[in-house]
Amino acid sequence: MKAREKRSKWVTTLLLLFCLIIFLLPFYFILVNAFKPMSEIAENGFALPKTLSLDNFRNAFTRLNFANAMKNTVVVTLLSNIGGLVMGSMAGYWLARKKNKVTAFIYFVFIGSMAIPFQAIMIPFAKVAKTLHMTNSLWGLAVAFWAFTLPISIFMTVGAMKNVPIEVEEAARIDGCSSFRMFWTIVFPLIRPAVITFVIINTFWFWNDYLLTQMMLSRKALRTIQLAMQAMFNDAFYAWDTALAALTLSIIPLLIFFIILQRNIIEGMSAGSVKG
């Protein structure tokens, strides 16, 4: 029995190592070739660079207008997260505590909208955005993200509220606490793990989104990192040395974000899972 369990662990470990190698192989290719000139990439794309050079990164930084693209991406991410956090958590709390047929229907509509792909509503949404003068505006893009992130934010907040005793809120009301203050000072800290979870999920979406961002922003000065990357690839499709350095630059901020918040990511995922 012990021998069988040992063999099973070895097989599982080998399979996991194989999957890890397959997963990390593209990142290895990108990182290694980001430091090599085009001649070395053409000679052997998987070989280590003969000499480390930062010329590709300098060219990519200039061609991407990386500082401006980074600023635009950070602004959109922050604005989108703030609005999504405030509206999503408050709406989820209200739907969880005001249970009746109307709120049940509203909740069903929000959850059902998660099954609709953006491509299915892209054309009518583009017309609405143009009518409301939301295009070519970082604020307009953030408002669009608020709308599209509400379903996941509400879903996770409602789930987290199932673990918050109603007695806590009743005691606060007896002490004269208003509903608004009670939510932010008492309820919100109790559902913070779930909030952190959907904020992290949304952050990765905001940072990496291309389709909605490309539809909303057409001015060159408003390009985010993903739009700047696409524009650079269109101009230099065969300049793999510069392109791979640009990819590395676009990955680094999210990698730092993940390293800083990895503990919160794990805690949020486990604490955000709900009963019943």
Results as ranks from 00 to 15, higher is better:
residue 183 F to E: 04
residue 184 W to Q: 10
residue 184 W to P: 08
residue 184 W to F: 15
residue 184 W to E: 09
residue 185 T to F: 14
residue 185 T to C: 13
residue 185 T to E: 11
residue 185 T to Y: 15
residue 186 I to M: 11
residue 186 I to K: 10
residue 186 I to H: 08
residue 186 I to D: 03
residue 186 I to S: 08
residue 186 I to V: 15
residue 188 F to R: 09
residue 188 F to A: 15
residue 188 F to N: 07
residue 188 F to D: 02
residue 188 F to G: 06
residue 189 P to L: 03
residue 189 P to N: 06
residue 189 P to W: 08
residue 190 L to S: 15
residue 190 L to K: 14
residue 190 L to V: 11
residue 190 L to A: 14
residue 191 I to G: 06
residue 191 I to M: 11
residue 191 I to E: 02
residue 191 I to K: 07
residue 192 R to C: 13
residue 192 R to E: 12
residue 193 P to K: 07
residue 193 P to R: 08
residue 193 P to W: 10
residue 194 A to L: 10
residue 194 A to D: 09
residue 194 A to H: 05
residue 194 A to T: 10
residue 194 A to P: 06
residue 194 A to Q: 05
residue 195 V to K: 00
residue 196 I to F: 14
residue 197 T to F: 09
residue 197 T to N: 10
residue 197 T to M: 11
residue 197 T to P: 11
residue 198 F to T: 06
residue 198 F to R: 05
residue 198 F to H: 11
residue 198 F to M: 08
residue 198 F to N: 06
residue 198 F to Y: 15
residue 199 V to E: 14
residue 199 V to L: 15
residue 199 V to S: 13
residue 199 V to C: 15
residue 199 V to Y: 11
residue 199 V to N: 15
residue 200 I to V: 13
residue 200 I to H: 07
residue 200 I to T: 10
residue 200 I to K: 06
residue 200 I to W: 10
residue 200 I to D: 08
residue 201 I to P: 03
residue 202 N to E: 08
residue 202 N to K: 09
residue 202 N to R: 05
residue 202 N to A: 11
residue 202 N to V: 06
residue 203 T to A: 11
residue 203 T to M: 09
residue 204 F to Y: 15
residue 205 W to F: 14
residue 205 W to K: 01
residue 206 F to Q: 02
residue 206 F to H: 03
residue 206 F to L: 02
residue 206 F to M: 02
residue 207 W to D: 06
residue 207 W to E: 07
residue 207 W to Q: 03
residue 207 W to R: 03
residue 208 N to R: 05
residue 208 N to Y: 03
residue 208 N to G: 10
residue 208 N to H: 09
residue 208 N to P: 09
residue 208 N to E: 01
residue 208 N to V: 07
residue 209 D to A: 03
residue 209 D to R: 07
residue 209 D to T: 01
residue 209 D to P: 01
residue 209 D to C: 05
residue 210 Y to E: 06
residue 210 Y to H: 07
residue 210 Y to D: 06
residue 210 Y to I: 04
residue 211 L to A: 11
residue 211 L to H: 05
residue 211 L to R: 03
residue 211 L to D: 00
residue 211 L to G: 02
residue 212 L to M: 12
residue 212 L to D: 07
residue 212 L to K: 05
residue 212 L to Q: 00
residue 213 T to N: 04
residue 213 T to V: 09
residue 213 T to A: 09
residue 213 T to R: 01
residue 214 Q to S: 13
residue 214 Q to C: 09
residue 214 Q to Y: 05
residue 214 Q to D: 14
residue 214 Q to I: 06
residue 214 Q to T: 12
residue 215 M to N: 11
